[in-house]
Design a protein around this nucleic acid. Sequence first.
DNA 1: CCGGTTATTGGTCGCATGGCCAACTGGCTA
DNA 2: TAGCCAGTTGGCCATGCGACCAATAACCGG
Lengths: 214, 214
Amino acid sequence: MASRPQPTRVRKLPDERRAEILRTAARIALEEGLERITLRRVADELGVRPGLIGHYFPAADTLVAEAFTDAATRERDTLLPADEEGLAPIDRLARFLVRLADGTYLDLSRLWLNARHLSRFKEGLREAVGAQETVTRTALTALIEAGVVAGEFDTDDALGAALHILVTVDGLGSYANADADIDVRLDHPALDDMAITTAEHELGLGRGTLRARL
Amino acid sequence: MASRPQPTRVRKLPDERRAEILRTAARIALEEGLERITLRRVADELGVRPGLIGHYFPAADTLVAEAFTDAATRERDTLLPADEEGLAPIDRLARFLVRLADGTYLDLSRLWLNARHLSRFKEGLREAVGAQETVTRTALTALIEAGVVAGEFDTDDALGAALHILVTVDGLGSYANADADIDVRLDHPALDDMAITTAEHELGLGRGTLRARL
DNA sequence: CCGGTTATTGGTCGCATGGCCAACTGGCTA
DNA sequence: TAGCCAGTTGGCCATGCGACCAATAACCGG
């Protein structure tokens, strides 16, 4: 407290301001959708004038793309932390899938749905989505390969298995999304376990093996 | 030709005009996205004034929701025709899945992605999506049940199997969509066959059984 | 303490959207 | 043929958007 760098700063350092804007935009994207990221909206949120946001992001599309990348990265780090090296691959996978199924990450699946659709119209976002997709796919494939080496998984196509799992997770996200706040929500046991079941089947694990790891 | 009802009609009958507007809006939705359905856009397409569209659809959201329903219904009738009674369930399913994998129906999967996302903001569309989802799910479930009765499929949870297939199809649609027009497009055999493989596994069919039905 | 750099302001523009409404006129009916 | 109903027009409004820019003032270095 005694040695606070800028006690009563009015103007912020560019890096600090830029990061602040990005963080705010990412939060808006997760909570309300990427199309709600607006120069005015972000400015209001930060208590500054819209022009300032435009100053840091001359093209609004850039802000949207970077906000998505920021949000997707942070969420992935929570779902599939890179610094869990001490943990066995099978346990990392189990945690990843269970966290997803938790429903806690409804916002994230909505964000992906949002981004995938919006990328149809926004070049920069399309590239960002592709990049994030690659990162996730690569990380999961590496995890599976590590598990194969460790003798925990049995598959001769780690990428194929990763794709199957990710496609399933994505499909589930779409479904869950549709009836998010309706009471008519479809509730079937197959939906709850689908991702885990798929992973177990794809990796040569017995039914219930993954869930049992918790 | 001799007894053409309205040879040079300028003003159209309400039902006729309304259907014409809906058809146009549905086409725009399939080709360019639901958010391109605009009073002005549809009007231009039909060579009339924007106000006229507003006259038939006092709330623009209604037009969007009905256009989606129209497009989704037409496309479903092509993919899974109801009047194929002569065909065995297993053959109907095989045709359904192969048609989907064809890639011919990229527009349709994009439309669903579009609708699922946009339904977050539009009440009417949300209901329409739910309704269409129910129709498709019900039709596929009935098809599977018929196959079980005929001894072609083996499952004790037709709905669960239908859900698994539909979730997979949806997930694939999302993936295919993302890299639609990029050359970096991910190409893995597991993706091409995933829906069919899932169906075969879920229905107790041997690998390659479904594709062999063509 | 002063001068220059630049973060920030505050406003304006052009554009697209949906909604609204009075006026016009095509075409049916009595 | 006269008249009326309603399909259709044309124009207006408020709103929200991104882009742009000159002016201002906060901060930092000399």
